[in-house]
Amino acid sequence: MTRRSRNWPLWVGFATALLAAFSYVPFFVKFPVTRDFPWANLVLFLAAGCLLAIGLYRAFAQPERYRGKISGVIFGVLSLAVFGLFCFGVFWLARNIPRAETAPRVGQRAPEFTLTGLDGNSVTLSQLRQGNRFVVLIFYRGYW
């Protein structure tokens, strides 16, 4: 019986799929070009898919030479699941925010407010406007 060699594209493909999913938040969100649309991660997923396809092809078309019929299927399914979760997070969860239809539009008056600053002091929009040409109000989700 001939020794069958390890089917490396399966392992590398699965590793690439994991890298594609878990590199977005710690790394690619730091750069506006790769954050607004996660094309870098999608390219990595595409590479992972190609590697897995090559590995699976070798495992099933040349079973006498390559291993990986079982591991290949497991890696393939897991990679698809990881890809699905990634798409769910980026294309659904991140976009699942209200549309803000009642927000003041350009030309309308900005609602006056009185809020508290870091040291508990009251700050109004009128105060902020005084002495400034513009005020940029950045509403953010917060860190709770």
Binding site: I97, A103, V106, A110, F134, V136, F139
Partner: peptide, 16 residues
């Protein structure tokens, strides 16, 4: 909480 949003307000209090 707040959804992310940004408003530019001018000296007169108008959203620009």
């Amino acid at each position: 909480i707040a959804r992310p949003a940004e408003f530019l307000v001018d000296r007169e209090g108008t959203v620009r």
